[in-house]
Design a protein around this nucleic acid. Structure first.
Lengths: 337, 337
DNA sequence: CCTGTTTCTGTAAGCGCTTGCAAGATCGAG
DNA sequence: CTCGATCTTGCAAGCGCTTACAGAAACAGG
């Protein structure tokens, strides 16, 4: 089937292609009396503009690229969904890529997206291979960084204060009387969220004079199985921790399962906290004390922000989004406390 | 920053733009001695081809569109991830959209993707508004339907036999001695997977002369909370079912949680089965009897299939992928059985 | 050394759309 | 009725790339 072009529509109506183009992009720019016939011709011929040609001529692709660390989990899915919904109304589409938490792959993804001419970019976190940010900047592509909120980031951040949230969690446990802690964290190398959370925990403990030695922190890849193993490792210490802070929710689930299997009662024998408040957190027994992160909100706001920038408007000043610290049943006073 | 074009690279090397274009698209088509200098120039100038121009000139966009019912759950995330990985190596990118299980929205998504000139399309299930399939066909865009395997589908299916899997589950329970069943199913209207699974259950029961009346089937939107409620409803019947078959995993989790809260022991008082084998299935107590669906495999194969078609090759004949019926602790003989 | 092949490269014609420019149309004010 | 301002429109020049086509170069065989 031969493609229907602007030209075809123009011929059908008896105007020039330029006029039809103007109508398509901003109906207000053509005479009232022309609008209806043009629209009818478009419908009749089932004309759909050629995105490539459009992007070539206008230097805009109406695509927004998003790179997530993973899509295997619903963590980022919610943000992606929200982003997509937010920008769809404006005629934009999301081109998505997932890096598998691998910086090298992320670099390639960004390059590919840039090559594909995305008009804007959404990334997660601020830690990546050197030069990537510069590459984006040089391309002049608006970019927004989610999930974190650094003051010193190269791009606007639409995220939340990971460190402070983690501090809340740790503070809560110290207040309950805990003094011996274990922490299960994501790998720190390429993940500033994990880094910030661990730093937050460290801060909170240091503030109150509680020590956290190296062996008290286990880094692992995100996963329930990994959480189980890390928990086992932490609980084999002597003396063992009375509270285990998890930097991501799968760790907490793993810890909870492992505790149950080991016959440990939570929170009587050990307190366990999560981070993210995914759906299971409220359902599992004991319900998980955790931090509800504004995932959908980040996706939506990132979209709105980028659209604003693309429209030449002054976007709302990005700020740290609120999170919610939720105390449930998995945290309580330490044994004998 | 002015864009670096083919021309710039060509000038730097001292060849024509056409030669560089050939090198980029298929290095084998230029003289050995030229390859290195061209590559160097590309690297030095940080040249990235303009996707739009490329797609305009070649009539191919190197984008594959995918529409999922939702991305909020990891169910489809795994497939998306796999799809993306599969086609990335071939220089393709995924343009993603989610319909929120709404056929009208799905139609719009498909149209948008088509308008954006995707070279191929991946959809989930075969139930959609009339005309959508024809639209795709008329555009001549290769399309693949995942998650199901109908013989009569308008496009190749890369999925599994939902009905047979459900039959396996129901058969297993009948074999254990169950005669009174409850079923929690997704809404049937726009979801052929849910329909097929329910039909499978019906078949298996009918085969062995077990009745399943209308009130024994509760349809709900996917979600744990919805599962809880449906389970409550089913268990309030008199006599109550000895086994509850869930057409999707969140229902099963909800049922399990609700059972625990109601003081029912699973499987002693009631057997519960899931469908999908998401990570929680093996971890929860009691571990869930369920069907492991080939999610990542579908994504990867869909990608491979589409790439093959796009390359003009004869793709491997699509066939129903194997699933795995996994018996764990949540199913057992009926009480007093 | 010539001819027929084969390989490689440059030329140039678009792909479908946007947009600066300028001309034509319209209109209100003087 | 004239003039300038304001709208509206068509013309035409690209946007950056691919791809016949044909010419040039290289090579083998006779």
């Amino acid at each position: 089937m031969a493609r229907v072009t602007l030209e075809d529509v123009a011929r059908a109506v008896g105007v020039s292609a330029a006029t039809v183009s103007r109508y398509v992009n901003d109906p207000g720019r053509v005479r009232e009396a022309l609008r209806d016939p043009i629209q009818r011709a478009i419908d009749e011929l089932a004309y759909v503009p050629h995105g490539g040609a459009r992007s070539l001529a206008s230097r805009r692709s109406r695509m927004i690229g998003a790179v997530f660390p993973s899509l295997q989990t619903s963590l980022f899915g919610g943000a992606l969904d929200a982003l997509q919904n937010e920008i769809a109304a404006a005629g934009y589409t999301v081109v998505v890529a997932s890096s598998g938490y691998d910086p090298a792959r992320e670099t390639v993804q960004v390059q590919t997206l840039l090559a594909n001419g995305v008009d804007a970019l959404m990334l997660v976190g601020g830690a990546r291979e050197p030069g990537v940010h510069r590459l984006i900047e040089r391309k002049g592509v608006p970019c927004v960084i989610t999930w974190v909120s650094h003051a010193d980031a190269p791009f606007p951040c639409i995220g939340f204060d990971n460190a402070r949230a983690a501090r809340d969690v740790a503070g809560h446990l110290v207040d309950l009387g805990h003094r011996r802690f274990g922490v299960i964290s994501g790998h720190l190398e390429h993940n500033d969220r994990a880094g910030a959370r661990l730093a937050g925990v460290r801060d909170a403990l240091a503030d109150r004079g509680v020590a956290l030695d190296a062996a008290g922190v286990v880094c692992a890849s995100f996963g329930v199985e990994e959480g189980r193993e890390a928990f086992r490792r932490l609980m084999s210490r002597d003396p063992r921790p009375t509270a285990v802070i998890c930097g991501a929710e799968p760790f907490a689930y793993g810890a909870l399962f492992e505790a149950a299997e080991a016959g440990l009662s939570v929170p009587r024998d050990v307190s366990i906290t999560g981070f993210d408040d995914m759906w299971l957190a409220a359902q599992i027994t004991p319900a998980l004390t955790t931090v509800r992160t504004p995932r959908a909100r980040m996706g939506a706001l990132a979209g709105r922000h980028l659209l604003a920038v693309l429209a030449g408007e002054e976007p709302a000043a990005p700020l740290a989004l609120p999170y919610e610290f939720i105390v449930r049943q998995s945290s309580g006073p330490p044994p004998g406390g």
